[in-house]
């Protein structure tokens, strides 16, 4: 059995009179990337702040590496690296001095670890420049370097791809997968983008209005919800053939939607082509997060 590195039990938080987190529970296993998916205002950041000890839960418990963060703050924090929202490092210090600052807050880590992590995140060239001269992507990387200093078992990243360009997002994704697979870290990543979570994570918790609606592997969550969008000529004939094979839906703008299954898609395509229909477009489409939510929450409005 895989080891559990982070365990969250029935976490609740009331701010003022408003209950913002209404009982969240989940576990993180070693070497796993876990997605925390929810729309704006769902409570992702608030939950993460409780996980890292910035705010005190109203009730419930958090254990990191087997240590309760309230009773054993010191030991729990040794196993944790995190970025909450943006990595706000000191702009007036160089990247190196920033890392040195956080190394000094750890007991058993020396300066050679700074060299190691800067190499790991690929920031060696610019490490002695002031952080205020860094681009957002470089700051994100420095943030990760900072989180990795103490060789944590659990890495918590709140929207790590926020503000990155597509190449940066891709790089970040590969890097996070590398950390989980090669270094055996458990990584918790929050996001409101389904596409991002889908490519990155092994398991996902979907959260809305302070509650976990569903926790599952990505495949389970998305299978038979993916759609295939067709366009062909002649339209009516193609539609007729496709309808005889599977359930179709005419979106009214010259496209037909069917469900997506990799084997069947090829088969249907072949039959259309054999019947003399020219298939001009076949597009696999992820369900929008909104659709998924509407389905899961039974039509509740997202706010």
């Amino acid at each position: 059995m895989e080891k559990t590195t982070l365990s969250v039990r029935n976490l609740k938080k009331t701010i003022g009179k408003k209950e913002i987190i209404k009982g969240i529970s989940f576990d993180l296993k070693e070497g796993e990337v876990f997605g925390f998916l929810g729309p704006n205002g769902a409570g992702k950041t608030t939950t993460i702040r409780m996980l890292v000890g910035l705010i005190k839960p109203t009730s419930g418990s958090v254990e990191i590496g087997g240590y309760n963060i309230e009773n054993h703050f010191f030991e729990a924090m040794k196993n944790l690296g995190c970025i909450v929202e943006n990595p706000e490092l000191y702009p007036y210090l160089s990247g190196w001095d920033n890392l040195l600052h956080f190394v000094r807050m750890l007991d058993d880590v020396g300066e050679e670890r700074i060299t190691e992590v800067t190499q790991l995140v690929g920031l060696t060239d610019r490490i002695h420049d002031k952080v205020k001269t860094y681009s957002l992507g470089m700051r994100q990387r420095l943030g990760i370097a900072q989180a990795l200093l103490g060789r944590p078992k659990v890495l918590i990243l709140d929207e790590p791809t926020n503000g990155l360009d597509p190449a940066g997002i891709r790089e970040m994704r590969q890097f996070i997968r590398f950390l989980a697979e090669s270094e055996g870290l458990s990584v918790l990543v929050s996001s409101h983008l389904l596409s991002e979570i889908q490519l990155l994570c092994d398991r996902v918790a979907i959260i809305s209005k302070g509650k976990v609606i569903r926790t599952d592997t990505v495949e389970h969550l998305l299978s038979n919800r993916e759609q295939l969008i067709w366009s062909f000529e002649p339209f009516e004939k193609g539609k007729e053939i496709l309808s005889s094979l599977t359930k179709t839906e005419d979106s009214g703008d010259g496209f037909i939607r069917t469900e997506y299954e990799s084997e069947k898609a090829a088969l249907w395509n072949k039959q259309l082509v054999d019947a003399g229909v020219k298939v001009t477009e076949m597009n696999r489409k992820l369900p929008a997060l909104e659709d998924l939510f509407l389905e899961l929450t039974g039509g509740d409005k997202i706010d």
């Binding site: 000890g53 703050f73 010191f74 924090m77 040794k78 929202e85 956080f102 750890l106």
Partner: peptide, 14 residues
């Protein structure tokens, strides 16, 4: 105001 308090308080230092 910088936000660095979040990094400062999530270290193994009381």
């Amino acid at each position: 105001s910088l936000g660095s308090i979040k990094l400062l308080l999530t270290r193994p230092v009381r």
